[in-house]
Design a protein around this nucleic acid. Structure first.
Lengths: 401, 401
DNA sequence: TGGGTACAGTATCAGCCTGATAGAAAACTC
DNA sequence: GAGTTTTCTATCAGGCTGATACTGTACCCA
C-alpha cells in the first residue's frame, strides 16, 4: 500500500476489461453470436473468440443453440450463464431474517425465512439474538449449497442501517446493532468474501441491474417502509458517500422550523412518514387497524382502497412529505429515474401518480417515476449482484481459473 | 456508435492509463525521481523510464535538478510542467465577461476583463451582444497565446446556467441564453476542443483540483452569488446528472407550503436567497445600499460588519434557508467537505460558522465546511482543468505526439 | 447431386506494452 | 583511483490485440 495513489494497467487488465465487456454485452442483450459481440463491443473477431473460449471454459457463458443461417454458416449463440454459480444472501430485516441462495443470473434457488418471534422484538438482548440467528442462516445456506454440489462463493448481507465498506454495521436501529463487524465475523467463519450493504442501496442495485432501472445510468431507489431511505446510482455505480450515509433522507429537514429542533438518533422526515410517525398520526386522526394491532402502511393503503376519508387524508399528507424529499433529491442529483420500493412499493398505484402531481411545476426536471419491478426480491437480487461482483472481479477468481 | 454498450481496452489504453498515473503522482506529490514514481505507482523501472521519456518529449513533465546522493548515483527529479501548455478560459458572468490564458499548472498568464455596460444588462438583444463579446474575447486570447509562441490548445467556457455535454447552453437566465450552441460555435471558429460547463460545477472542479478540496473524493461546492447552485464531485468525478441539472438547488422546496405554489423559471430557494430575493427582503426591512444602488450581498455583509441589526437579521434568515438546503444536500450525498464560494465566499467568516451551528444536531454527519481557497479564480482554474483534460486525454494529443 | 457462394469461426503473425534482467552511468567512500 | 552504491537504460521474453488468411458449414442453383 504505502502511499499508492493511482491504479495502473497491464496486459492482464486489458484482458479482464474486455472479458467484462463481453459479459456485460451478453447479460444486457441476451444471447449473441461471436460476430454480434464483436460488433457491440468493438473487439476484433479473434479477440472475441479467444476470450469467449476462456469464459466458456470457466463456465461463465454457455452455448445456446444456433441462429438460423442467413445464407452462410449459421452462428453459434453464446449466453451468459450464472447457473451453477451461487452466492448466499442474508437479509436481516426488522421483522424477519431471510436467507437465499442466488445464482449469477439472479435466480433464487433456495430460501430460508425466519420470522422474528414477537417477544424478541423488544428484548434487551435482541441484538445478540438476531446476530446468532443470522449466522445460523448463513450456515444453513452454505450447507444447502454444498448439498447441491455448488458451493456458495460469496455472501451478501443486507441490513436496515448504515454499513461501512469494511463490512461493519455502524448503526442499525431496527436491530439495535451498533458497530457490529458482521463482515469479518462471516468471512472468518466461512472463508468467503463478504459484502455488507444498506437495504436501500441494494434495492437500487437490484432494480438497476435486473429491474425497472435496467440500462439507466443515474437513478434513485426510494425505500418506503418501516423507515425511509434511498439508494443512489450515479454513472452506473452505487454512490455510498464519505461515511456510507448517502441517501439517508430520513434526516432531511422539511421546513425552517426544523432548525429550531434537534434530531438525535432519528430524522425529521422519518419521524413524520416512518411507521412510528404513521401510527401516531393515525391515532390522532382516529384511524385504527381492524383488529387493534399497531397500524402498518399496508393497513393505511387498505383503508384508502376501501374508501376511508381519514386514511386518504393521512396518505395525502404523507405523500406531501415524501414529495418534498424526492423533489429535493432530484434537484441535487438530477436522476433519470426514481424507483419506489419497500413495503409501500406494492402500493405504487397509490403513490407514484400523487408524487408526480406534486413534482410537476415545482422542480424543473421531473424524472420518470416507476414502481419496483422485483418487489420483495429486489433486495435479495441486489445483494446477490454485489456478492457476485466480488467473485467476478476479485483475485479469488483469477486464482481458480 | 450503434449500440456500443461498454468500453474495451487495448495496449494503447494501458499506456495512457499508466502515463496518467505518472502524471497524477507528479502533480500530487511534487517532484519525484523515477525510482519514487515506480514505488508510488507500482510500475517497473523500465516502464517508468520509457513513459517518462515520452512525457518529457511531449513537454508535459520536465527535469528539475538532482536529489542529493545517498551514496550512489544521484537521482534526477522529474516535475509536472504545465507551463508552456496553454488553454483559454472564457467566463461569461452576469455582470462581466472574463477571459484568461491558463497553463496546465493552473497558473493564469494572461487576463481579459470586460465589464458589461449597464445599458446592456437589460437590453432586448443582450443575448446576442454578450455572445459576440464572448467570441471576441476568445479571439483575443487566441491571439495573445499565439503571440507568446504557445498556442492555446483547448477552450473552457463557464456560464451561469445549464450546459449540456455537447457544449450547448440550454438555459442561462442571467445571459438570456436559450439553446445557444457555444461549444460548436467556438470549435468551428478555432478548430480547438471546447468544453462548456456550469459555474458551480467548475468551482467544484477547481477547488477539488487545486483548492480547498485537494485529495477529497466526495465534495460539494456551493456557489452563493446572484443565484445559488452547487457543483458535486463524487468519487473524484464531476456529477452532472441525467440532464446536466444536478446541483441546481435553487429549485429546492423548503417547506410543505411550497407544494401549493408553482415555480416556473425560478426556484423556491433561489427566490428567497438569490440577489432578487435579497433585495426584496432588504427593502421590506428598510435596508438600503448607502448610495441608493440595488443592494448586493456584499452590501449586506458590510452592513452586518458595521453593526446593523436589520442586516444581521436578514443574514440570519438567509443562512436559515441556505442551511436547510445544505442539510438536505448532505443527507442525500454524504460529502466529506462542503466548500462555500461565489460572491459570498469571501465572507466565509460570516457564513460557515452560522452554517455549522445550524447543521450540528440536525443531520447525523456534518461534513467539514470550508471557504473557497481560490476565490474568484476558482472558476477560471476549474474550467482550465477541464480544458486541459480534453487535451491530455483526447485523441487530439495522440495525433500530435 | 455437386459446385459456387456467403457467412461464421479459427490459426498465424506482426505490433505494442509491460516487467525482468543485465548492463552502463554517476556520484560517493576509503 | 578502485570499490561501492544507487540510478538510469538497453535488451528480451511474454501477454494481449487486431489484421490477414484460412477452414468450416449451410444454403442456393443448375
Amino acid at each position: 500500500m504505502s502511499g499508492r495513489t493511482s491504479s495502473t494497467a497491464n496486459a492482464e487488465t486489458v484482458s479482464r476489461v474486455n472479458q467484462t465487456a463481453i459479459l456485460d454485452a451478453l447479460r444486457q442483450h441476451g444471447p449473441l453470436s461471436r460476430q454480434q459481440i464483436g460488433a457491440r463491443t468493438g473487439l476484433s473477431a479473434a479477440t472475441v473468440n479467444r476470450l469467449a473460449a476462456q469464459l466458456l471454459s470457466r463456465g461463465l457463458i454457455v452455448t445456446d443453440g444456433h441462429q438460423p443461417s442467413t445464407g452462410g454458416r449459421p452462428s453459434i449463440l453464446l449466453r451468459y450463464s450464472g447457473r451453477g454459480q451461487l452466492v448466499s444472501v442474508l437479509h436481516v430485516g426488522a421483522t424477519r431474517t431471510e436467507g437465499a441462495l442466488v445464482d449469477f443470473d439472479g435466480g433464487i434457488v433456495h430460501r430460508v425465512r425466519r420470522p422474528v418471534v414477537p417477544d424478541v422484538l423488544h428484548a434487551a438482548d435482541r441484538a445478540t439474538i438476531r446476530l446468532e440467528e443470522a449466522l445460523s442462516v448463513v450456515a444453513e445456506l452454505g450447507a444447502a449449497a454444498d448439498g447441491r454440489g455448488q458451493p456458495s462463493q460469496a455472501i451478501g448481507v443486507v441490513v436496515p442501517g448504515v454499513a461501512g465498506a469494511d463490512g461493519r454495521v455502524t448503526w442499525a436501529p431496527a436491530l439495535d446493532w451498533r458497530e457490529v463487524p458482521v463482515g469479518s465475523l462471516l468471512s472468518e467463519r466461512t472463508g468467503l468474501p463478504v459484502v455488507v450493504e444498506n437495504d436501500a442501496n441494494v434495492l437500487a442495485v437490484g432494480e438497476h441491474h435486473r429491474g425497472a432501472g435496467r440500462g439507466v445510468q443515474d437513478l434513485v431507489a426510494v425505500m418506503l417502509g418501516t423507515g425511509i431511505g434511498t439508494g443512489i446510482v450515479t454513472g452506473g455505480r452505487l454512490h455510498r458517500g464519505s461515511r456510507a450515509a448517502a441517501g439517508e433522507i430520513g434526516y432531511m429537514l422539511l421546513d425552517r422550523s426544523s432548525l429550531a429542533r434537534l434530531f438525535p438518533g432519528f430524522g425529521d422526515l422519518e419521524s413524520r412518514v416512518g411507521s412510528a410517525g404513521l401510527t401516531r398520526q393515525a391515532r390522532e386522526r382516529g384511524i385504527a387497524a381492524p383488529d387493534g394491532r399497531p397500524l402498518t402502511a399496508a393497513d393505511v393503503f387498505d383503508l384508502v382502497r376501501s374508501g376511508s376519508v381519514e386514511a386518504r387524508a393521512l396518505l395525502e399528507e404523507t405523500l406531501d412529505h415524501v414529495a418534498l424529499a424526492v423533489a429535493n433529491l432530484c434537484t441535487v442529483l438530477d436522476p433519470e429515474l426514481v424507483i419506489v420500493g419497500g413495503e409501500m412499493g406494492g402500493a405504487a398505484d397509490l403513490i407514484t401518480p400523487g408524487l408526480r402531481d406534486r413534482l410537476v411545476g415545482r422542480i424543473p426536471h421531473v424524472p420518470r417515476l416507476a414502481a419496483s419491478e422485483l418487489g420483495d426480491d429486489a433486495v435479495i437480487v441486489g445483494a446477490a449482484e454485489l456478492a457476485a461482483r466480488l467473485v467476478r472481479n476479485s483475485a479469488y477468481v483469477a486464482a481458480t481459473r
